[in-house]
């Protein structure tokens, strides 16, 4: 019985780890923490994903281009260029490159919200997306 409990605990621990954590996301989550972010909150990331701001007269959120179905590809709001799915389960390359993740956070936060995202917001987004 004791053994069973231990096994369940191990299983529980495994389940608690975000499904698609990668060395890149580990590095970045540690970095955001060092920049002052507290515990990442995936539900906040989910809420922020569709939070709209008006930038240059246009209502923008992450979902404007990426959509909200992470298994499907999105479309750039201006150029129409196809954006590969955000889900790491569907798109194995997604969220595996530190430089890329940071580059797009920087660009896209400015495009969608008119400012850079805070370390906390990025940690929330990353944790939310890793679980998709």
């Amino acid at each position: 019985m004791k053994r069973f409990t231990a096994m369940m605990m191990v299983l529980g621990l495994i389940a608690a780890v975000p499904a698609m954590a990668s060395p890149a996301s580990d590095t970045l989550l540690a970095q955001y923490k060092s920049e002052g972010a507290s515990k990442p909150d995936a539900s906040k990331g989910k809420k922020d994903w569709t939070r709209e701001e008006v930038v240059d007269g246009e209502k923008m959120s992450c979902a404007t281009c990426h959509g909200s179905d992470f298994s499907k590809s999105g479309k750039h709001h201006r150029t129409g260029k196809v954006i590969e799915p955000m889900s790491p389960k569907v798109n194995a390359e997604r969220l595996t490159d530190v430089k890329k993740i940071e580059k797009w956070f920087k660009r896209n936060c400015k495009d969608a919200w008119g400012r850079e995202c805070t370390a906390q917001e990025k940690a929330d987004f990353l944790t939310f997306l890793l679980a998709q």
Binding site: R78, K99, K103, K106, K110, D111
Partner: peptide, 12 residues
Amino acid sequence: LEDHFGENAELD
């Protein structure tokens, strides 16, 4: 590139 036809296209 920070305002590339209305988009942020900054590069390192």
